[in-house]
């Protein structure tokens, strides 16, 4: 069985010699990201409490780091890196499009309901 693995991560910045080595490399990367998340979550630095695009900067950092972790789990543990481009796009784009749409709709609506509760009248009528 010929299994060609793509052994470069971070756009070719780090190249591993074998698939096993790559797995441990990705584990180290994921552990570092998780450790950063936990440390930020415990200490909550004041400098990251500024609001950016309706949410705390810290929360944006958490979400971005989560997507980074999700990327490496999918690409390296689930071998998405080695699948054909069309399979990759079928799975990833479908999910990403539908999830972003759902999140937008529900969070928009949640914020709207909050405003109705708070102000007691309807501010926007779609």
């Amino acid at each position: 069985m010929a299994h060609a693995h793509n052994l470069a991560i971070l756009r070719g910045l780090i190249k591993f010699k074998s698939n096993t080595q790559k797995i441990w490399g990705v584990l180290i990367l994921l552990s570092i990201v998780t450790a950063v998340e936990v440390i930020l979550g415990i200490y909550k630095p004041d400098s990251l409490m500024a609001h950016v695009l309706g949410m705390k900067l810290l929360n944006w950092i958490f979400i971005i780091l989560t997507i980074v972790k999700a990327y490496y789990i999918t690409w390296d543990f689930m071998h998405m890196r080695d699948e054909t481009k069309s399979l990759r796009r079928m799975v990833v784009w479908t999910a990403i499009f539908l999830i972003l749409y759902l999140i937008f709709i529900l969070l928009q609506e949640g914020g709207y309901v909050f405003d109705v509760y708070k102000d007691g009248f309807i501010k926007r009528d779609f």
């Binding site: 079928m90 999910a95 539908l98 999140i103 529900l106 609506e109 949640g110 309901v113 909050f114 509760y117």
Partner: peptide, 26 residues
């Protein structure tokens, strides 16, 4: 893979509903 996509959408539905409730009582 396709099962995983559909299951991922199920979980996103739950987490988005959580987000909805959280934004409602932010």
């Amino acid at each position: 893979w396709f099962f995983i996509v559909s299951d991922a959408l199920t979980f996103s539905g739950f987490l988005a509903a959580y987000g909805f409730s959280r934004f409602k009582f932010i």
